[in-house]
Nucleic acid binder design. Structure first.
Lengths: 110, 110
DNA sequence: ACCCATGTTCGACATCCGTCGAACAACCTC
DNA sequence: GAGGTTGTTCGACGGATGTCGAACATGGGT
């Protein structure tokens, strides 16, 4: 059948940032592994999920990326078998000015 | 006996802010009740613990104030049977510039 | 077509966390 | 000192969370 489209891209769940409570954003950032991921993402463009090797299994990594995505912190682009993740910096900055910068500026290992 | 001193003030556990991991600070802020408390504290000076009526029992309130204190967010002064709590704004601002302001500026009910 | 690489999902498990009532402790007042 | 006020601590309980291995899905390469 022809109405199948060229799809398969399964609609990743990426909420509007304004619908995410601040506490959810903070909770997403309040984890060591996730904060490392966010720091890495803050360096620049897009990263494949596999890029992040922080001593956890790929199941756990996948879980953390999902938490970040559903907290409105990241956006994911699907390309083949890989997924490319990037920070939603501008949106974040618009809704919570200074928050991300402040967190990123904090000493990495307290 | 005279060597009893005039004590009983039991040494509240208030860590150095630099010893608290950022993730702990964020986790402390990542709760609705605690964020309400912090917002109230941000209004000004000192508040007795009993001031905070946010629909939780006093046991729970006590718990949250402990979490905030041990995350280095508040300082507590003991006076009689009351405890007066205040935000450690300057210290926070010095170690995590902009963080608290960004969180406080966020819309209260997302 | 087969295999491999990349990620997600599914239990399962242990731990942490928010919540409460009840008991306790300290202090003030009468 | 008896009683009331203020706040902490102690289980207990239910729900969330981080972690993993194994199974699954999808797509690329040879």
């Amino acid at each position: 059948m022809s109405n199948m489209g060229y799809a398969g891209h399964m609609e990743l769940h990426e909420p509007e940032l304004r619908d995410v409570p601040v506490t959810a954003v903070l909770a997403a950032l309040a984890d060591d592994v996730r904060l490392q991921i966010v720091r890495a993402l803050a360096e620049g463009g897009e990263y494949a999920c596999g890029t992040f090797e922080f001593g956890v299994s790929k199941a756990t990594r996948s879980h953390h990326l999902k938490v970040l995505r559903e907290a409105g912190l990241t956006r994911t682009r699907v390309a083949g078998t890989s997924r490319y993740v990037r920070l939603r910096r501008e949106e974040l900055q618009r809704l919570y000015p200074g928050l991300l910068d402040a967190v990123l500026a904090a000493p990495a290992r307290a």
